[in-house]
Design a protein around this nucleic acid. Structure first.
Lengths: 149, 149
DNA sequence: GATGCAGTTGCGACCTGGTCGCAGTAGCGG
DNA sequence: CCGCTACTGCGACCAGGTCGCAACTGCATC
């Protein structure tokens, strides 16, 4: 989806649900779209405050909550530290290296075998959208082996 | 391992590393051993304070950190909210129902297929010891289907 | 283009979960 | 039973986020 389309589409959806389009909301949505990767609420607040320094963090949190309720975005906890946000139509999961913080995105279907196994063996429906799967990237896992061996 | 053995063994290990055995530490370790499931630091503090009300939460956190550094215990984040603690020799992983909070323990080997897949396809070594795997238990996943359909 | 009112805002207080510096206390090796 | 040093209780502090409130403003209506 083109960024301009997304911008107008989200605002239309917001209005359709009785929400109002305000200057802070435009700026926050713009910041979300402009961030290619996974921004935190703090990063988005900082981006918005470059042009609108009076914008308060609580405004950002509240609008992010609204967008999440509308199904526009999701938030993910990558580990300790703040949550990150991304558009909900971008359906992937996150692997996070606990050593260097690298985030690897994996498509949902990569989970299918494991999900089936947990379903049949443990009556559990895995859904790691809200929390990332922790571990080590190859580089960190190899350097750990070298330094400890 | 019998509880009494574990108690003495941990204290011996502590002393072997230059640590001291104090009344608060005995009480915290006792509370850890007496908890069959996965207590939070707050629960352990409360348990200890039944008999030793002067015990401070920071003492509990510090001793838990020490025990973790000694490899005696691990902490796991089950989701939002406080971390829980368990003995490190009890090597399992945690599936947590995000709806009802149910914790399912799974042995490490249940992860092997998925771990191999992530390793070969994404150069990633999954190690979900420090964060639980989120999802829904069977009951919650079925009641969600009913109420939404 | 003025009016009204509900949705939104900035602000500051507050919350949870946890950490830290400090001065005083107390293990435990000698 | 001394003395060194680890440990303790205490309170302040921190990150990340939430909430109540009074003021403001989008926007539907007239």
């Amino acid at each position: 989806m083109a960024a301009a389309d997304r911008f107008d589409e989200v605002l239309a959806l917001l209005r359709a649900h009785g929400g109002r389009v305000t200057a802070p909301r435009r700026a926050i949505l713009r910041a979300l779209i402009d961030h290619a990767d996974h921004p935190t609420a703090e990063q988005l607040t900082a981006d918005v405050q470059v042009r609108h320094p009076e914008t308060h963090e609580s405004t950002v949190y509240r609008f992010l909550d609204d967008l999440e309720r509308l199904g526009v975005i999701d938030h993910v906890h990558l580990g300790h530290g703040p949550a990150v946000y991304h558009f909900a139509d971008d359906t992937h999961h996150h692997l996070v290296c606990e050593a260097c913080g690298l985030v690897v995105e994996v498509p949902d279907r990569a989970l299918e075998g494991f999900r089936r196994r947990l379903r049949s063996d443990f009556d559990f429906e895995m859904e790691p959208r809200h929390f990332a799967v922790p571990g080590r990237c190859r580089a960190c896992s190899e350097s750990a082996k070298v330094s400890s061996g």
